[in-house]
Design a protein around this nucleic acid. Structure first.
Lengths: 210, 210
DNA sequence: ATAAAAATCAAACAGTTGTTTAATTTATTG
DNA sequence: CAATAAATTAAACAACTGTTTGATTTTTAT
């Protein structure tokens, strides 16, 4: 996935617009205008609006996998520590790329684009595989219980993070932050809350007998 | 919200199309064709495509609240039993109206429609209020721990159910059901899995000290 | 400096969008 | 049955859609 500087700039603007108005709700003219370029440049650079979306997925998903892979190999950490790090990593990643996650969630339900769908499926598989491996390691060392439904566990993590992130405003209406607190301070708060919450849930799923 | 028979029929078809292709991705001609009516009838009955969406939200959300309300008053049930019933109720409801939930989730992120947004907010508030009340009851009877983050708890329930429902196909690719099993059999399986899983999580959240 | 390649542009393209119009059919009512 | 109202229709409306064209400018390489 090699993209030029110009392409990356267009992708970034497309990302914010797709997140705010949806893929179908965003016109190529919207993107061109906000990027300060001519409409024709989108076809010129990406071929089509559809292929622009594919490029966005390839670009964003490609940059994810690396750090996770190294986690498994680390011998100095216990299985539970690894799981906890994985949770932190995931929470961090979603909140850092909120816009792309919006697009992922909304688009995976309605797109028929085979390239996008296969990117998503590959990502999901990788997630499950990775956690499965971590859990097996913990089971071998008798630190985790035997029967664990990995898919359900992943669903809880992804779902909770998703639901919390997308309803962040609602949360702060119910739990008003101190006046004058910045948006980024709130983000940190949400991150910590999510991390603690999910770690507690996972610990139970993994260690308590049913 | 009083709708005629004809209006309800149109709403139902619009619901399936919005769920499959998104609101922006569905044209009024798509709806008219599938409903076997003239395009003009949609403006005639609802005023506009936008108001059709509002009508859909009002119609579907309005029919939700009733059963939940009665749950609280029931004196014969323990707080935990009530929570468990609430979980069953919620899982049941989402899986029964899968299409509408798809629309809810995708549209709440991108719509600027004030009527839709306010319907959604009202629904969320009601959910949190209800569970808060149930939890307070359990705390008074010293059956639940003192500090419970209700919003986070609700997020875990909604998020898990959502994530599991929307990735149902993925789940059955990893855990193949017996050959010849029907779709509705799979739905029942998912319901049970979700129900058990979330009940276990909630029990921990509510009773274990941190 | 010159030729070739790449980038940018305004304009036009054919389709589709949601909505409205005005005519016609169907149903209701007195 | 006649008059009124409601429902339905095909056609037209202007605005917008993604994409292409062909000319023009800018950049690169010789």
């Amino acid at each position: 996935m090699e993209f030029t500087e110009k392409q990356l700039q267009i992708l970034e603007i497309a990302e914010t617009l797709f997140a705010a108005k949806g893929f179908e709700g965003t016109s190529v003219r919207d993107i061109a205008e906000k990027a300060g370029i001519n409409v024709a440049m989108i076809s010129y650079y990406f071929g089509s609006k559809e292929k622009l979306l594919e490029a966005l997925f390839k670009s964003r998903i490609g940059s994810v996998q690396v750090r996770m892979e190294n986690l498994i190999k680390d011998q100095s950490l216990s299985p539970l520590q690894k799981i906890n790090l994985l949770i932190d990593e995931y929470v961090e990643r979603v909140l850092q790329h909120e816009n792309f996650f919006k697009i992922m969630v909304t688009e995976q339900l309605i797109t028929k684009n085979p390239s996008v769908l296969s990117s998503l499926k590959q990502l999901k598989l990788r997630n499950v595989e990775l956690i499965t491996q971590l859990i097996k390691e913990g089971q071998k060392k008798n630190m985790f219980r035997k029967k664990v439904d990995v898919v359900m566990m992943v669903n809880t993590m992804i779902g909770t993070v998703w639901q919390t992130t997308m309803n962040r405003d609602f949360y702060f209406e119910l739990h008003p932050a101190p006046v004058g607190s910045t948006d980024s301070a709130n983000t940190i708060l949400i991150k910590r809350k999510l991390s603690i919450h999910i770690k507690a849930l996972f610990k139970v799923i993994l260690t308590h007998e049913a």
